[in-house]
Amino acid sequence: MKAEGVREVEIQEIQIGQEYEKVGIPFQKIGFWIFLAGEIVILGGIVASVILFRLSYPHWFEESVHTNATIAFINTLVLLTGSLTAVLSHQSAFSYNWGKAQLFLGLTALCGLVFVGLKFVEYSREIHHGFVPSRNVFWMSYYTTTGLHGLHVLAGTLIIFGVMLYIKKKKVPEAVENAALYWHFVDIVWLYIFPLFYLT
């Protein structure tokens, strides 16, 4: 870099677009990953707190049998399917197959809606049976974690839907990539929530 400093004394004019340092990563991607890092810590904070509550709560296993593992299992499959379609959309966008990218994004958004719908059914059944958030440590942890996660799925669905409309006008593959990244992140969190509340 020092040698370059000497050489550049000669430069009198510079081509537009050449005036910046080369970075090699699209700025949208860096920005999104910084945001995502924050999101990981938010959900990580909830999950870590819940793990601590779980470890100090002796009746966890007696309560966790009341959750609906069947719906949660279906929801896991739904999220994983959404992840597959999201990554296929990402791949299509980077090979400039925009029609396919939109189609796959639509499928992902559909998965998001199915997930939120099933979650809603689950909640209403549980509340109907008297399992409300203030019941005990298990249920307050359950509602807080899955509720926050559900909001993230909803947000992810809206982002995916928004990007689906956005790439009709602007062909920015990074937009598809970022939307897919968000979906994968929400998916990974669910992979831990599923055993945490439903299986064990």
């Binding site: 990981i40 810590v41 990580g44 601590l52 470890l55 100090s56």
Partner: peptide, 26 residues
């Protein structure tokens, strides 16, 4: 950017642990 959050998760989990586990929740 992907790994630092996991370190923070570990800090929260393990450094908070002795204090939170010392009280049994009901």
């Amino acid at each position: 950017l992907a790994l630092i959050p996991l370190v923070i998760f570990a800090i929260i989990l393990f450094i908070f642990m002795p204090d939170i586990l010392s009280t049994v929740k009901q």
